[in-house]
Design a protein around this nucleic acid. Structure first.
Lengths: 258, 258
DNA sequence: TCAAAAGTGTTTAGCATACACCCATGC
DNA sequence: GCATGGGTGTATGCTAAACACTTTTGA
């Protein structure tokens, strides 16, 4: 753990550019290798991991700030992004105290570092296509990579709570509106889609019922056979009907249709 | 519209005591006379109405701040209070521009009044027992009273949007968890409970199915007959089983069980 | 030819909807 | 006694859950 003074870091992060006291935290979900993944950042010169976060520019809509931050970490432009909870506890330091956290992150003493002032944080979760993401650290972090949701280490602040709640909301959401458009490649098989659902829900589903349900939504378009190396009967490929998919999303919930 | 300088108002509202840039807005629902009501405040010396709002003390949890503000407006201590959305648009002035709003509220010129700086606002909705509320204006308002949800006038800021969304979330919530504990007196009849549901949902329900569904939740306790002046067959009185009610709430959703 | 994965259709059960009859009370 | 509101039970239908057989393919 090398020394890096708070000055050093402050230089690269201009607190004045942003609305103070409000932050955005992103729980970015991806799906790969039959596992649900979440994107985490490792703080400079250390072993501490955290969620990607962002701040709101003075004249910027918060939702835009969330999209912008997501874009900066993943390279992705338009994805499923949903506000799920706002965290407003006075003390949001969980595994380590504020003092301890500052020390670990290279802010010695009790400087009045804007980063460590009390923040209210708005949590968003995103569903993105794993293969298209280019994980990119920011000015404060050394590394950005996917973690298996089941293997997330103790994170800084209350970020473990955030992931847990995001997952809870995601699971509920799954039951009344289709999800998958942003988590899978353009063409996918029904078993792949099913595995995605099973992974998110954490429980096995019946193949036949699943297929019926999905097709029942009327948002899937079937293509031709799938050839590739699969060592068994070749499954069909499907594609989402963007139009109808969006429709189904709106019908379910949405914070927009005020 | 009398003159009241911004100084006059600022004196009574100490912005330094609170976390800046974050506000809390409360959509307080009550039920009376077969109508869903919402509690509104009228700004000093004017005709402009708005939602009760609050701010977070520096060392205070946001949820506590919401409860505290609610307590101050209603006198009620423990009620159903739920965060439903955080509003983060850069410009949250709807019916009137910022300039116009400041003028109407007695802040002439473009003083840098903390109240009118850009805020991110966390919306909570509350369900309270109408008869127990003592509507109480705050330092910035002259009047606090109930409005029929259907007859709410154009409000300041984006407060009409907030009510609309709160109602939407409340309706959805109603479908997967019981509600009513905080909106009705301790003892109530099944038809009363039904009228509450019908009012919230904005549609008539079948008496018999409604009763079955409610009793199915296993959260109601039936008492003896109801005597009073009702000009027809006396309906039974019921009471919520607090234990089981709380249980049912937790089973449904909840932002707590992280 | 066999195991493993995928495609398809039928039965069943639970819950929500629709609906009808009897009882109490005030005018 | 009749209109109004309240109490209760049954029939129906739809959707979700449970379940079995056939087909393809590589080893």
């Amino acid at each position: 753990m090398k020394s890096s003074t708070s000055q050093e870091i402050q230089l690269k992060w201009n607190a004045d550019a942003f609305v103070p006291r409000v932050s955005i935290d992103l729980v970015i979900f991806g799906f790969h290798d039959g596992q649900l993944k979440v994107l985490l950042l490792r703080w400079k010169n250390g072993e501490d991991w955290m969620l990607p976060s962002g701040f709101i520019l003075h004249e910027e809509d918060m939702e835009n700030a969330a999209h912008r931050s997501l874009q900066q970490r993943t390279g992705l432009q338009s994805v499923f992004l949903q506000q799920f909870h706002t965290f407003g506890e006075a003390d949001r330091f969980k595994h380590f105290s504020k003092q301890e956290t500052m020390r670990r992150l290279g802010f010695p003493g009790d400087t009045d570092e804007p980063l460590f002032r009390r923040h209210v944080s708005v949590g968003y979760y995103a569903l993105v296509e794993f293969a298209e993401v280019v994980p990119t650290p920011d000015e404060l972090t050394d590394e950005c990579r996917w973690w298996d949701v089941e293997e997330v280490p103790p994170l800084l602040f209350d970020h473990n709570d955030m992931i847990r709640l995001a997952l809870k909301v995601l699971r509920r959401q799954l039951s009344y509106q289709p999800i998958g458009y942003n988590l899978l490649p353009e063409k996918f098989t029904m078993p792949e889609l099913q595995r995605l659902y099973e992974t998110i829900l954490g429980q096995p589903l019946d193949r036949r019922n699943f297929q019926k349900q999905m097709l029942g939504y009327g948002i899937l378009e079937r293509l031709e056979e799938r050839k590739t190396g699969g060592a068994h009967k070749a499954p069909y490929l499907y594609r989402f009907d963007k139009e109808k998919y969006e429709q189904a999303l709106d019908d379910g919930m949405s914070t927009h249709g005020l």
